[in-house]
């Protein structure tokens, strides 16, 4: 996000079409739209901004409406999913509920899905490793994990997750036991997946809050393991 945190809505003169802030030789931000020199403001970017401005002028959407959504979107972060995983690790009753009635349990926990999409929760074990992809685009449980990372949306991940998931996991630093079965699941707009990674050894007696710090985002997509204690 840009450094000009005091920027107001889209129509303020301080608004920039890019998150990058240009600085002059003295390091002061200067006020022409801060678009990266190497990219500039693309045609599609300016057309998106044009459509927004036109619809606000026509009164089809309110001036602050998009900013309100941006604010709400910023509350979707991977620690949401991590709290659920840590609770599932700690509380067998909750674990069963999360696996058997995932959508209801996620909503009861305060995380409302986008587009009312369904969700399935999958548990990784020494026997089975689940890994999530969206081959067609980028579907993802954003209410639990925040926006999908760039690599999740990349052509190479979308292609290779299907054909060589072990090689992909290896690139992410996870060397699976060859006896572990790999199941790749393909998301769509109606159905998202959350993975419960294996609980690391050496965490007996840890509180949910402590455990949640080990539940990294990639482990909930299934491309990585949970963080080992003491390694951050």
């Amino acid at each position: 996000m840009s450094e000009d945190k005091d920027r107001g809505g889209f129509f303020d003169t301080g608004w920039r079409p890019s998150g990058d802030v240009h600085r002059d030789e003295d390091g002061r931000p200067h006020d022409h739209p801060g678009v990266r020199e190497d990219v500039g403001l693309g045609v599609r970017a300016s057309r998106a901004l044009a459509m927004h401005e036109l619809l606000v002028e026509k009164g089809v959407i309110g001036e602050g409406e998009v900013d309100e959504v941006i604010e709400a979107v910023s509350k979707r972060v991977p620690s949401n999913g991590a709290t659920l995983v840590a609770k599932a690790w700690s509380d067998p009753e909750f674990r069963t509920k999360l696996l058997e009635h995932p959508k209801e349990t996620v909503i009861e926990s305060g995380f409302v899905p986008e587009h009312n999409a369904d969700i399935i929760v999958l548990e990784n074990t020494p026997e089975v490793q689940h890994m999530v992809v969206c081959t067609l685009c980028s579907c993802y449980p954003t209410q639990l994990l925040g926006p999908p990372p760039d690599w999740y949306k990349s052509f190479s991940y979308r292609s290779r997750a299907v054909t060589e998931p072990r090689a992909v996991m290896s690139e992410f630093g996870l060397e699976l036991d060859e006896k572990t079965e790999v199941r790749v699941v393909d998301s769509n707009s109606e159905l998202r997946f959350l993975v419960i990674p294996r609980r690391p050894d050496g965490t007996d007696g840890w509180s949910e809050e402590q455990l949640a710090t080990l539940v990294n985002r990639n482990s909930m997509i299934g491309v990585s393991a949970a963080t080992e204690p003491g390694t951050d």
Partner: peptide
């Protein structure tokens, strides 16, 4: 790092 126009476009679609 997301450009402002990207955040804006994502939320514009939601609106």
């Amino acid at each position: 790092e997301w450009a402002d126009w990207e955040r804006q476009t994502q939320s514009f679609r939601t609106v």
